[in-house]
């Protein structure tokens, strides 16, 4: 069950632009989460330009699929993709984290600009997504799918596993979770801070259908979404192997880049590196 394939080359070019936007936004804001935004780019682009049914012209469309960014700190990536998709003017991106901006430091629900839920306190997104999926199921509106993207560090929150049970108990096959499996969190490597492995087996044991993907390879992500869409009678999860800080060599795989923005010279170097490819 696959959808119309987008032009991969175009998506790859778009990914570079989105990364540039993210870095520029964070640079202007002077604070924010660089590493965990850069790791999300291909996943979000695949969701918004391939997988989800949505309409930026009509953000409140009642048949739209829903997306919850449970790891709310990755919102610069979401904002950049939403602006690119046409939900709001690109100029808004440069107001990130500024007083009075609709682009809050962590997402604030605003359906008119494509933000389905307020998130930022980790661990709540999957529960919210369960509620949305349940409500679609109660309305026999199963064509509407709900997607929830979590961080791997976030999986240390107990509430995630409460929601994991609920999704299986209610056979929410209209729900698809995605993990940005970049192995790092603010304090360091996930395995050192509080181990969560074996991740694949854990989700299987909870009753989910588990897929793994290369979170920076569009073909691999699309294939995982295609498979997830075909799962019946239970929820699906895609464990997407990613690199924190992807695309900029001196930011990649550095826990120190979790919660800081690039300074002027760093921004310049990062943008140069991105453009060179």
């Amino acid at each position: 069950m696959s959808k119309k394939r987008p032009d991969i080359k175009k998506l790859e070019d778009k990914a570079v632009e989105i990364r540039e936007d993210i870095l520029n936004m964070l640079g202007k804001a002077g604070s924010g989460h660089t590493g965990g935004s850069l790791s999300l780019v291909e996943l979000l682009l695949t969701l918004y330009f391939y997988e989800m049914r949505h309409n930026p012209e009509n953000p409140g469309w009642d048949k739209r699929d829903k997306f919850i960014l449970s790891k709310g700190h990755g919102c610069p990536a979401l904002y950049a993709v939403l602006a690119d998709a046409g939900y709001f003017p690109r100029e808004w991106l440069w107001t990130l984290r500024k007083m009075g901006s609709r682009l809050q430091g962590h997402p604030q629900k605003d359906i008119s600009m494509g933000i389905e839920a307020s998130t930022g306190s980790l661990g709540q997104g999957l529960s919210i997504a369960c509620g949305l999926a349940l409500s679609a199921m109660l309305d026999s509106n199963k064509a509407v799918r709900t997607y929830c993207l979590m961080g791997d560090g976030e999986l240390q929150e107990g509430q995630v596993w409460e929601a994991a049970m609920m999704a299986v108990h209610y056979k929410l096959d209209n729900l698809c979770a995605i993990v940005d499996w970049n192995k790092l969190q603010i304090d360091g490597w996930v395995k050192d801070v509080m181990g969560i492995e074996p991740l694949n087996k854990k989700w299987k044991a909870f009753g989910w259908e588990v897929f793994e993907a290369d979170g920076h390879n569009f073909e691999s992500i699309m294939e995982a979404f295609n498979k997830a869409r075909g799962v019946k009678g239970k929820p699906a999860i895609i464990l997407a192997r990613t690199v924190k800080g992807k695309g900029v060599s001196f930011i990649e795989n550095q826990a120190g880049w979790h919660g800081i923005a690039p300074k002027k010279d760093e921004l310049k170097r990062a943008l140069e590196e991105l453009r060179k490819g």
Partner: peptide
């Protein structure tokens, strides 16, 4: 949080 999701879904 699931109740919040249900409310977002119109319940």
């Amino acid at each position: 949080s699931a109740a919040a999701g249900l409310a977002l879904g119109g319940k």
